[in-house]
Design a protein around this nucleic acid. Structure first.
Lengths: 159, 159
DNA sequence: CTTAATTGTCAAGATACTTGACTACATTTA
DNA sequence: TAAATGTAGTCAAGTATCTTGACAATTAAG
């Protein structure tokens, strides 16, 4: 099946970017599959990321844009989708008639509770797989990478 | 600008999946930008990943599918695009009239050389940012995660 | 009041995947 | 050799997640 392997072994990419991509995709697949099994078939990783940024009292859409580092239109599309699934809802901001505040619905809070549990389970599986030391080192390194460097937000341009 | 931050601080997602996604996106953006500056505006991370899997003597498309962990149709689309850019070309396999072997063109080899240099530069920047120990730990952890677990290839189904 | 900035929407498009249906060729088996 | 099964690749269509550009409504600053 893999008869050409010998002559191509040298070609395997082994840089951090590729590994990050692989790991990110694997995590995503595991999470979405577990959520689907828990009855939340509408969940995707992008949606999970957005949901995690919404506070208890709700969060203005503009704040989500600032935090997520993607364009406001991307945020809007995610919010549109989640609103359609009745996971969140948009309420007017009493202090600013332009703004809309994104809040969890009851269904959204239930989903979020399951999501948190599942994330913890996946993290524990990873910890078991890597060993505590290596897992903690992974987390530490990823957190350091997440710190703003030149920090350009792609959404800051258009308007 | 971020006036609701206080009440939402608790909501920041801080799990490994989200960090992986962030880091993967950042790496990708840095790589593609550097390649564009080097005159390879057609480059994307997905294309880079595929190119890295092609050996010196070429590699059958089916082997690329096995290695990349994505569907054969996704591989085909990437190959189609790269063939259109004249980065690679498909030649018939003399031993199997079904198969096609994907080989680099001259233009492809030049691009790959720049890509390798840029990847090394980005890795060194990361190493400088994280410190050697933490960077090596990151690499080690990601490699461990890349090892097949249940190893289901999503492309193995359809056909 | 005028100008500039912020907030959000609508429309369109690019990228990177997916599943499903199909053809052509190769391999195994009866 | 003929039938069944498996493998390599293609074509078509759809989904998820981003992008840029153009715009309207509102607020803030001069």
């Amino acid at each position: 099946m893999v008869k050409h392997l010998d002559e191509n072994t040298e070609a395997w990419p082994d840089h951090v970017g590729w590994r990050l991509w692989q790991a990110s995709r694997a995590w995503q697949a595991a999470f979405v599959a577990a959520m689907r099994d828990a009855g939340h078939g509408w969940m995707t990783e992008a949606r999970a990321a957005l949901l995690g940024h919404i506070g208890r009292r709700g969060t203005p859409q503009s704040a989500l844009i600032d935090r997520m580092g993607i364009s406001k239109q991307a945020v809007q599309q995610l919010v549109d989708g989640l609103e359609g699934e009745e996971i969140i809802s948009r309420v007017p901001d009493p202090d600013d008639r332009r703004a809309r505040i994104v809040v969890h619905t009851q269904k959204g809070r239930l989903a979020l509770r399951d999501a948190d549990r599942i994330k913890r389970e996946i993290e524990q599986a990873y910890r078991a797989r890597l060993g505590t030391d290596r897992f903690d080192a992974l987390k530490s390194a990823l957190e350091a990478l997440a710190l703003p460097q030149d920090g350009k937000n792609p959404g800051d341009r258009g308007g």
